[in-house]
Simulated scan of single mutants.
Amino acid sequence: MKIFKRTENIIILTLWLTILSTYPYALLNDYNLFLSDYLGLAGLTIVTLIAFYIPKMTFKSLMVLLFFGLFNLFSFIYFINLVFTFGFASIVSPGIQLLSLILLLILAFKRQGELGIIWTNLFGQTDEEIQQNKDRMKDSFKVKFINLSDKEIENRLQNDLVGEARKALIEIQNERKNAL
């Protein structure tokens, strides 16, 4: 049984290789590691533990880790780290970390179905919200059409209308028939 998916496995191994190939050399030569380096190491350790103990959460946790790495909040490589910076270098130097960007794009491409589900859950509308929007639209059409004569309603029903406009006209017709 696979503990976690191959793409996540390769990305985690790539990050561990970059950390293990550059951080020890930096420490042996008395270079100072930055806070982002320590955060990257801690984050990668947490993601690795999640991959082994809660495999269902590997994708989400790796996406979060790479997202923080993307904006150079977490760093995974010391010497050859490519960061596209922008802003005022003397005050703040935010940037886009190339390694995290590439790995994040690979992960997003390979798992676009799962990413779509997460996106929908976070930002999409539920079925209830969609129905409420349709009901509001129908009610606004109903207010707009309420003063039309029966003949005008019949003429409008012969035209191409959006579903909610058609429903509003039919409701007005039914209400008028029931009122008689």
Results as ranks from 00 to 15, higher is better:
F84I: 15
F84Y: 13
F84Q: 12
T85S: 13
T85D: 12
G87H: 00
G87W: 05
A89E: 15
I91Y: 07
V92F: 11
S93N: 13
P94G: 09
G95L: 04
G95T: 02
G95V: 07
L98S: 04
L98V: 07
L99V: 10
L99Q: 00
L99P: 05
S100L: 05
S100N: 05
L101P: 13
L101I: 02
I102G: 12
L104H: 12
L105Q: 10
L105T: 08
I106Q: 03
I106K: 06
I106M: 11
A108W: 11
F109N: 14
F109S: 14
K110W: 02
Q112E: 02
Q112H: 15
G113Q: 13
G113P: 06
G113L: 13
L115P: 00
G116Y: 09
G116T: 09
I118E: 02
W119K: 14
T120H: 14
T120V: 11
L122A: 00
L122E: 03
G124R: 03
G124K: 06
G124S: 04
Q125E: 12
Q125W: 05
Q125T: 01
T126C: 11
D127L: 14
D127C: 10
E128V: 04
E129M: 07
E129H: 05
I130K: 11
I130H: 00
Q131V: 09
Q131I: 10
Q132C: 03
N133Q: 12
K134I: 05
D135V: 02
D135K: 10
R136M: 01
M137W: 02
K138W: 00
K138E: 04
